[in-house]
Computed example of a mutant assay.
Amino acid sequence: MIKVVVAGALGKMGQESCKAIVNAEGMQLAGAVDSRDSGHTIGTYIGKPEVNVTVSGDLEQVIRDVRPDVLVDFTRPGVVQRHIEIAINAGVRPVIGTTGMNAEEIERFVQLASAQRVGGLIAPNFAIGALLMIKFATEAAKFFPHVEIIELHHDQKMDAPSGTAMKTAESIAAVRGHMSQGMPSEFEKIEGVRGGNFEGMRIHSVRLPGFVAHQEVIFGGIGQTLSIRHDSISRESFMPGLILAVRKVMALDHLVYGLENLLFE
């Protein structure tokens, strides 16, 4: 039985994660952590009153009390970093869906996990379709190096661009390198209208109510265009990947960045 603690348990992704873990064969929701309403049971939030797990605001105490195998974290930048350190130092495998960390922070946790021989995962996206989108886009970039990325999320998302957009751009840059696109003399009449520039490709972030998580990668070539798009229309789309990740990290002794490295191994 894999014992799992969820941090950020009262958030939308946290609640969905708790439900998925409760329903998953061979898993136990051993703890729920959230500073917003500690003292109540998580079952009252996820429509499963039989789940008698009390929400706590103290991750370290929960880990000491229940001795979990895995920490699932859907909190926020500025909080997740401390949670990862607590988990790794306690020998608990982190499975991190919180985005907003930079490359230096991720590398620091890779080194820490390696030193402690603790497995874990930091994943910008748990949707299997999104991982396939990144894989297909990376292949396409070998033949269509001119590319722009448009990502669309709900208006409560804190970081921009999304972790998925950054992961896509990094994967594309790995096969095509830096390349200047468009007119060298172009100018913006409104600052930022052309989006952010990563290795010469433009990334555009849309934040509006009604969206969940969506991304389109648009390639341009001579006389043709190619668009690769993925849409998560509900947070349930992330759960099969999350459950897969929880199972996979049990066999790891190091930290992996990107679920695709476990899915396509």
Rank of each mutant, 00 (worst) to 15 (best):
Q215S: 03
Q116N: 13
V249I: 13
T41K: 07
V55P: 10
V22Q: 12
G220I: 03
I21L: 13
P77F: 11
I233K: 07
D69Y: 08
A30R: 08
M158S: 13
S205T: 15
P145D: 01
G11E: 03
M27P: 12
D37I: 00
L121D: 06
V246W: 04
R82E: 14
T168N: 01
N52D: 14
V212Y: 13
R117D: 02
A213M: 09
Q224I: 07
G177S: 10
E151K: 08
Y257H: 11
V175G: 00
A115F: 07
R176C: 03
I134L: 03
V53G: 10
A7Q: 07
G220A: 10
F219N: 03
V118L: 11
V249E: 08
L29M: 06
S237H: 14
G223T: 03
D37R: 15
V80M: 03
R235S: 01
K167E: 14
V249H: 07
R67T: 10
K167H: 14
R117K: 15
E107T: 09
D73H: 00
C18Y: 02
P209K: 07
K142W: 05
E105Q: 15
E16D: 11
D231A: 02
H153G: 06
N197Y: 00
M158F: 10
G100Y: 01
A103H: 11
A165P: 11
K19R: 15
F143S: 06
L59G: 02
E265T: 14
R82S: 14
I2H: 05
I233R: 09
P240H: 12
G200K: 05
G210W: 12
E199V: 04
R64A: 15
L71Y: 03
G129M: 12
L131H: 12
H153Q: 11
N125I: 15
G119L: 11
H40T: 13
F187G: 07
V193Q: 14
M158Y: 12
G8P: 02
R247Q: 15
R117T: 08
A113L: 07
E265R: 12
S180N: 10
A174W: 06
L112G: 02
L10P: 00
A140Q: 06
L132P: 00
G31R: 05
I218E: 07
K12A: 13
P124E: 12
F219R: 05
S205H: 08
V206N: 05
I150D: 10
S17E: 07
M13E: 14
G47I: 11
M133G: 00
F211N: 09
I86M: 14
K48I: 12
F144K: 01
G223W: 02
I88D: 10
E151P: 07
V33Y: 09
L242W: 06
P94Q: 14
P161D: 00
E191P: 01
G192Q: 09
E186Y: 07
T168I: 15
F143Y: 15
A173W: 04
M133R: 11
S234K: 05
G8Q: 05
I128Y: 15
V79E: 06
V70I: 15
G223D: 08
G119C: 11
D231P: 04
M250W: 04
P161Y: 02
A90T: 00
R202Y: 01
N125W: 08
D37V: 00
G14E: 10
K135F: 04
T225E: 04
A245D: 04
I243V: 15
G14Q: 10
G91M: 04
G47Y: 05
G97L: 12
Q181C: 06
